[in-house]
């Protein structure tokens, strides 16, 4: 019963998380801390903070943490699955419908407009990320270098470098900075 309850609770959190992982925290606090008392307020904030500095989707990471804390490994797995279930149901339905109507002029025109909006959404997101990411000369140089390699590689040489390469380099760089004892902000 408890396990079913965990799936159902995170199913609800998944439905209420509208517009990305950052929207989930208030919902999660209400459901898991205030209603169910599975974890404390401090714990949820810790999980959310660590969820941002671990690979993967922040919301899934946080869900796994909560499930693990409350009911072990199986709990962690079930909470994550509960969280992605609404996505599966909703997106699969929408994608199936859109596929059937994709040839209609009205749908084509709508998406041509929507893509313009997507540009702005990406731009806004990059500006927001920039503020927390680019804080000094080192981080500015890292940004420019990665951006330049991706863009020049694509438009001048037609090669696309895998993002994985840069992520691994960043972790390696972190280890080197640590060995050098560099202070970071």
């Amino acid at each position: 019963m408890l396990l079913l309850d965990m799936i159902w609770t995170f199913f609800k959190v998944g439905i209420c998380t509208f517009g990305g992982g950052y929207a989930m925290l208030p919902v999660l606090q209400r459901e898991v801390v205030e209603k169910k008392h599975w974890v404390t307020q401090e714990e949820i904030l810790d999980y959310y903070a660590v969820g941002q500095c671990t690979p993967g989707i922040i919301a899934v990471n946080t869900a796994t943490f909560v499930g693990y804390k409350h009911a072990g490994v199986l709990g962690g797995v079930l909470c994550s699955l509960g969280f992605v279930l609404p996505s599966l149901l909703i997106i699969l339905s929408i994608a199936a419908v859109l596929q059937n109507f994709a040839h209609l002029a009205v749908v084509k025109n709508a998406f041509a407009g929507i893509r313009i909006c997507v540009c702005v959404l990406i731009l806004n997101s990059v500006v927001k990320l920039w503020k927390s990411a680019v804080k000094d000369k080192v981080t500015l140089c890292v940004f420019i270098a990665v951006f330049a390699v991706m863009v020049v590689g694509k438009y001048a040489f037609g090669i696309s470098v895998s993002p994985v390469v840069f992520v691994l380099l960043a972790v390696l760089g972190g280890v080197v900075l640590n060995a050098l004892g560099k202070e970071t902000k």
Binding site: V126, L129, A133, F143, A145, F147, F166, V171, G174, T184
Partner: peptide, 23 residues
């Protein structure tokens, strides 16, 4: 972890910016 993230954040931002440029 701290220092890796110090570098990962600008990397991630630049990757998103580059993908965004294509759009």
């Amino acid at each position: 972890v701290d220092r890796s993230f110090y570098l990962l954040r600008p990397v991630s931002t630049a990757l998103i910016a580059a993908a965004g440029l294509s759009v």
